[in-house]
């Protein structure tokens, strides 16, 4: 599974280097949850609400992108605080990568990552591999439902909201939907939810067109085609061109909007091909 194989030419890396970004990512996901939980559990209200909409230190509003789009579809003009809230979210993920949300913040990621880890672990290879563009269809459908009904129909079952809200407000029944997603990813379709269906991820991926933080296959010339990165990548189709497109004049930067910036490829690559880098608008790169 995740364990690296060792090449003869490179010195062996310390084991923790293979879990570095995974560790920071889990820490980030936990911290986000903890920040929200500090209020109800310890009475420390740094942030109120949930991932759908929240208020930082009773002043700074945040609104989820998909929720915002639904409100606009359902109601037309959103309230000022809702609109201001989405600005901050667009700003943050516009810099860090649209789907940075998926890998570093969204609690469902922990569930689906567990499912895909178990899949690798148990050697389950079969499953439905529907197009990775279905999510945009789901996104359009969600917005059409909102526009047609005038209400936020998707929010009845939105697993991202159900999980986060469920944990923070103690609404445990909604978590059954999340359990369903776990089994869907485990038994029915590999990366089925986050990688093919989730409209939240689809909405955030649109921000990736402008985002600055990217993964670079900076040392792609030393790639040994071990395919470790493909195995762990939740969106392996994003790797191909940057990693192997040198002869075709394709740059080494992963620019596909579906890259979640999870950094797992950086972790598992035994040749240290990948790295995070900021791509400034003037095309210069700042490696991290």
């Amino acid at each position: 599974m995740l364990t690296p194989h060792h090449s003869a030419t490179e010195p062996q890396r310390a084991w923790w280097r293979f879990y570095q970004w995974l560790f920071w990512r889990r820490l980030s996901q936990m911290l986000v949850l903890l920040l929200f939980l500090l209020g109800p559990w310890a009475g420390i209200w740094i942030i109120q609400g949930n991932l759908s909409a929240s208020l930082i230190l009773e002043t700074l509003p945040m609104t989820d992108l998909l929720l915002f789009a639904q409100v606009v579809a359902a109601q037309g003009v959103p309230a000022l605080q809702v609109a201001l809230g989405v600005l901050l979210v667009v700003g943050v993920y516009g810099v860090l990568g649209g789907r940075f949300f998926c890998a570093w913040v969204c609690p469902v990621n922990m569930v689906t990552d567990l499912a895909s880890w178990l899949r690798r672990r148990m050697g389950i290879t079969k499953g439905w591999r529907g197009s990775r563009s279905i999510r945009f269809g789901v996104l359009v459908l969600v917005l059409l439902l909102a526009a047609g009904s005038g209400t936020l129909l998707w929010e009845w079952i939105n697993p991202v909201a159900l999980l986060h809200r469920g944990v923070i407000f103690g609404l445990w029944l909604g978590l059954l939907v999340v359990l369903g997603i776990f089994f869907f990813d485990l038994l029915v379709s590999p990366h089925g939810w986050c990688g093919r269906l989730c409209p939240t991820g689809a909405a955030y991926s649109l921000l990736s067109h402008v985002s600055l933080l990217r993964v670079d296959a900076a040392r792609r010339e030393v790639c040994t085609d071990c395919r470790e990165c493909y195995k762990v990548c939740p969106e392996p189709q994003v790797i191909d061109l940057p990693l192997r497109g040198a002869e075709r004049g394709i740059g080494p930067t992963i620019t596909d909007v579906q890259c979640t910036n999870c950094g797992r490829c950086i972790d598992v690559c035994p040749e240290d091909v990948y790295q995070f880098a900021f791509h400034l608008p003037n095309k210069s790169r700042v490696a991290l």
């Binding site: 109120q48 609400g49 949930n50 929240s54 208020l55 409100v71 359902a74 909102a146 936020l152 929010e155």
Partner: peptide
């Protein structure tokens, strides 16, 4: 139902 964000700020 078209406006409520389900954020729970009123609950808090």
């Amino acid at each position: 139902l078209g406006a409520c964000l389900r954020c729970g700020l009123c609950v808090r």
